[in-house]
């Protein structure tokens, strides 16, 4: 009755709402946890102590060199055709503007293709991207590469429609990357509402002028840590099921949903298993990554340092797509492994979360998956997730304690059963 015991404890037993309450205490105390910030390092120290107090084994920190970027004050004011103060969020790694700001006419485009067609109009202007939302993976390319593409055609700054599935005038931040040999121009996200308004204005032939001010600054790399804790395997302790989420966040809201809840549901999975006195045959290893938002910096280093043991990794799991009511598991692995995962998910019939989808992935586990280790991610209402993450709305209010209970139940059952099977998942 292991699966039933885990679900009962998580959903209606004494562990009910525990992951939500633990997370609320952390994020209400330290706030958002931008890589390179004192907030993140304080959160890591608190988590280290939390995991020790929880009685988990082999609790330790693994140091990582991480980028250090700070936002500073920022503003964007439309000067023509009318005065309008715009909500913006500068993008991670963006350079700032001169103190007096950049004042320039706007060129609105809806795609990179349109930008390239109208390249001759872009010189000296602020490029505004009004790309349609075609799902996160496709639309996020505008945030990541928007500044580089605009700079290539002579723009002085870029303002990008937030990559958001829904908006109530809420800009979303995120990482962007410069390219060697291309001028580094300031870049920020604007709201869906302002991007669409400027597109309408431009289509009418109206001249738009914006003054952009950003104090953003990049500092030398600093030190952070991946946080690790385990339930040591009883029979094959060297073999591992890795359960994870990332502890860093952007510097907006509370980083509650991205990825505080994923990290805390992962911790909760080990807590539930330990509370029930269970000890799987293989080691259950919790890793709370650092610097995921900067492109999986902590997890890349972890992979490089631990890949020598890759044959001992049975399954890598990451929860970084929200912890609303789970709809199932996204899984990448062989047909044989998938068939086994489907059987494991059948154990979750009592909470009606039995589906195994394709494309299990996560920034922090992709290195392992690409190297052939089976990988799983927790799936839920992604539209809701992409409405909140990277925005000021990423707070505890966006989360629901009961939904986190169900997420934790799924995570604990899957991780425990796979870690306890007689054999590792087939590759």
């Amino acid at each position: 009755d292991v699966a039933k015991a885990i679900v009962d404890l998580a959903v209606c037993g004494k562990a009910q709402n525990r992951s939500y309450e633990r997370l609320a205490l952390l994020v209400d105390t330290v706030g958002p946890r931008l890589t390179g910030s004192p907030n993140l390092e304080k959160a890591i120290q608190i988590m280290y102590q939390n995991l020790m107090d929880d009685g988990l084994k082999n609790v330790h920190l693994e140091p990582v060199k991480v980028p250090h970027w700070e936002r500073g004050q920022e503003s964007a004011v439309m000067l023509e055709p009318r005065n309008h103060s715009m909500a913006i969020l500068g993008l991670g790694s963006s350079v700032g503007t001169p103190p007096e700001g950049i004042t320039a006419e706007v060129l609105v485009v809806s795609s990179f293709d349109e930008l390239h067609r109208r390249a001759s109009e872009a010189r000296g202007k602020i490029v505004v991207y009004n790309q349609p939302y075609k799902g996160y993976g496709e639309s996020v390319q505008y945030r990541v590469q928007g500044a580089v593409e605009a700079a290539k055609v002579g723009a002085v700054a870029s303002l990008i429609k937030s990559v958001a599935s829904f908006s109530i005038y809420s800009p979303h931040t995120g990482i962007q990357y410069y390219q060697d040999g291309v001028p580094q121009i300031p870049t920020a996200c604007i709201t869906v509402e302002d991007a669409e308004m400027m597109a309408r204005m431009a289509s009418r032939g109206t001249k738009i002028v914006i003054q952009l001010k950003m104090e953003a600054k990049n500092y030398p790399d600093t030190e952070s840590f991946n946080t690790v804790a385990e339930i040591t395997g009883s029979k094959y302790p060297e073999q591992v099921v890795l359960v994870s989420g990332h502890l860093d966040s952007w510097d907006v809201g509370q980083g509650a949903l991205d990825d505080g809840s994923g990290a805390f549901v992962s911790w909760e999975a080990l807590s539930l298993i330990k509370d029930l006195g269970l000890r799987p045959k293989r080691t259950l290893r919790l890793v709370l990554w650092t610097a995921e938002e900067q492109g999986g910096i902590g997890s890349l280093q972890y992979y490089q340092q631990h890949k020598v043991n890759i044959s001992n990794f049975s399954l890598v799991m990451e929860s970084d797509l929200g912890n609303f009511m789970p709809t199932g598991l996204a899984f990448t692995g062989s047909d044989k492994a998938r068939a086994i995962m489907k059987e494991v998910m059948n154990l979750l019939q009592p909470i009606n979360t039995t589906q195994v989808f394709g494309d299990g992935e996560g920034v922090d586990i992709n290195y392992w998956i690409q190297a052939g280790v089976p990988g799983a991610s927790l799936l839920d209402d992604l539209k809701r997730y992409f409405s909140f993450h990277h925005s000021q709305g990423d707070t505890m209010t966006a989360l629901d304690p009961m939904q986190m209970n169900y997420s934790a139940a799924v995570w604990a059952v899957v991780s425990y059963v796979i870690a306890d099977l007689d054999e590792m998942l087939p590759r």
Partner: peptide, 24 residues
């Protein structure tokens, strides 16, 4: 140590299915 790596799968799928059902 009796380590079952990915090169050494001894159980049939039916046996694994029965094993998993034991966790219900």
């Amino acid at each position: 140590r009796a380590v079952c790596k990915d090169v050494c799968h001894l159980k049939t799928f039916e046996q694994i299915k029965e094993e998993i059902a034991g966790y219900q």
